[in-house]
Amino acid sequence: MTAPAMGGRGRVTSAWRKRLEILFFVTPALALFGLFVVWPIITAVQLSVYRWKGFGPLVDFVGLRNYVTVLADDVFVNSIVHNLIIVGGSIAIQLPLGLAIALLLNRKMWGQGLLRTIIFVPYVLAEVIAGVVWFQLLQPEYGVIDGLLGAVGLRAPEQGWLGDPDLALWTVLVVLTWKYLGLAVILFLAGLQGVPDELYEAAQLDGASWWQVQRKITVPLLGPTMRTWAFLSMIGALQLFDMVWILTGGGPANSTTTMATYLINQGTRSQNFGIAGAASVILFVIALIMAVLYQQLILSRDTRSDVVTARRKKTKKVIR
């Protein structure tokens, strides 16, 4: 009789102990999360329903008027379009290009390590530094790129690559591709290491060509990596700020504004903190919706444990 009772008590205390332990280890992280993530979000929501100039108490409650102002502002609506162009453009350009380079660099060849490093270096550079470098390279008349074009007899656009409203966004996209291609390549390379050699060997024994091997084995098995990368790329593109701010500041003629540059322009520059708050909440909601949809529709295939792990276990068994 005593034995089970004692055991019971022991189980209870150990359960409490566990809870205390969890509490002990999680609290600091939760506190930081609350302070630096949750609290700012709440503050932004709070600011978005007031008109506030940056000092004094929050007294001028305006309800949802700031949201109406933001959504009726062509500049903001165009910012969303620019963000979406960059989301789509980044994936459409970097996915095939990154995959091609990763496949190339995955083959045994001379200078492999060096090439990998070169491709990855732009990603390591601070975005601001890369931005300033490109800004100088792209200078009309005095920039290196205009100089090179001139040397081979081509004429650069009159107002420069960044000064022409029709070209600026595409120029920014090119610079972003240069900057972030390295991340795609390195992730794809890592993914490629996870594809077991036996599959290649088997395919080759079956007489598959190099192309067939890539199409039927490499790309499908790289799927989870590509989907995760696309997710990261999408979130990054939605929050794009630094590079645009350095290269164009949102100009010329608002042709490269993003949601983030819009809210800086309204917030710290024009001191319309309420409008900036509303814009940031909208940005948050858009990012959240896209992230959740992506999780549900695309990433769920990878996160559903049975498919992938089952496949892995199978291959492991085969190996053994």
Binding site: E141, L162, G163, T248, G249
Partner: peptide, 15 residues
């Protein structure tokens, strides 16, 4: 105006 004046900064740097 100078070429590219729409993105020319006011006072930072030689360009």
């Amino acid at each position: 105006f100078n070429r590219g004046f729409l993105t020319t900064p006011a006072q930072t740097g030689p360009t």
